[in-house]
């Protein structure tokens, strides 16, 4: 399966959920926000949101500066 993560192509052997993706990418689960096709997925739905072929994933961090 091919998906895009922050505009980079990523090949995955099988459909995984968001939580598994973050672990796969070695990203922190804390302080991260995830959007699938421009829709932000609440953290409580990371485990039950399965990624599909062609999905555009955006990963970014909370920033607090001002």
């Amino acid at each position: 399966m091919k998906i895009h993560v922050n505009e980079q192509v990523l090949e995955l052997a099988e459909n995984i959920n968001i939580e598994q993706l973050l672990v796969h990418l070695d990203k922190p689960l804390i302080g991260s926000a995830v959007a699938v096709n421009q829709d932000i997925i609440s953290r409580s739905h990371w485990a039950d949101t399965i990624l599909n072929e062609g999905d555009n994933i955006s990963l970014f961090q909370a920033i607090a500066g001002g």
Binding site: A35, Q38, D39, I40, I41, S42, R43, S44, S58
Partner: peptide, 8 residues
């Protein structure tokens, strides 16, 4: 970039 924030 624009993202939709959904109510949790």
């Amino acid at each position: 970039q624009t993202f939709t924030i959904n109510k949790d």
